[in-house]
Amino acid sequence: MTKSIISCGVYLPYLRIKRDEYLSALGRCSAGMREKTVLDIDEDVITMAVEASRVALAGIDVSRVGVVTVASTGFPYQEKAQAGTLVEALGLEKNVLTAQHSNSTVSGTESLLTALSLLDQTEQPYALVVVSDAPVSGPDVDLEHGFGAAACAFVLAKDEPGLVFEGVYAQSGEAMGLRYRLPGETDIRDIGVKTFAMLDYNETVKGAVTGLANKLGRNLTDYRHVVLHQADAKSATALAKKMGCTDEQIKEGVVYPYTGDTGACSSLLGLCRVLESACAGDCILISSHGSGSGSQALSFCLETPVPKSVVFEAVLGYKRYISYIQYLKQKRSI
């Protein structure tokens, strides 16, 4: 049985803040995006998840969805089956198999892998994977400057033409003090040792990516697109180049400059973007990363282009800029 992504949906909040706003308000900005997405006061990861899912499910018979997996580093409730909200909002059958992944930015690819597995446990042909994230920290924390918000959703199908899943390779190991949150805290923090963090990112992601290529007997050059987790403006591109990727392979999957750090969404959002221009026969590699740490590299091959109900560029273009003061109001900081 092949398992393929047959459709995807992206949701970006309408509100944006430019990096320049940070510069004029604070005199500096510790993140390198051009602008980033900002949740409206009545949005959260669940509302974004519903919107992205509705796009992905357009034209699909929702009664044939047998699996829903959902991922976010910050669900609105610490305890509650969040998939239920999606089931009601999307009108899915109540007997869907659900799984929820959280606690790390690697949870996005985890939820995709879980959905692939759970598809074997249902008679239904479709699984919905929703990854929605909006990392949070206080405005006085450097990490916060880059935090954006986004959701993406994928419909996986059994034996239907689309973006065929080829395989996965993972890395896991202890990495202390990098981007963490204690119970009861809403704000993300880290110890702020950049080179230490960079070392972990490079080693973990490289381990997953090269492991996957070896496992599948491929070279990285065989991939039309290589999309790595983007928690900042430079690391993903620098690492991809270090591993021998060309600009052509990297550039289309880069979304950070427009959205900021979208946490668990990051590489999956990049996947949605590259799918727009991908042609039949193209191979795509994505790799997530979560502090602590872990990385999962996934390989896909495009059998038939995935239909686009909403164009990524249009989603990027639908926006309104807000001031830094308004941004603080949106965050309920003032």
């Binding site: 009545d42 669940i46 509302t47 509705r54 609105p76 909200t85």
Partner: peptide, 20 residues
């Protein structure tokens, strides 16, 4: 129609429709 938070009460989020 879009899906949004309507308001929160007793710590429980009330979701529902708004329009854009």
């Amino acid at each position: 129609a879009v899906f949004r938070k309507i308001y929160e009460e007793e710590g429980v989020i009330r979701y529902g429709f708004k329009f854009s």
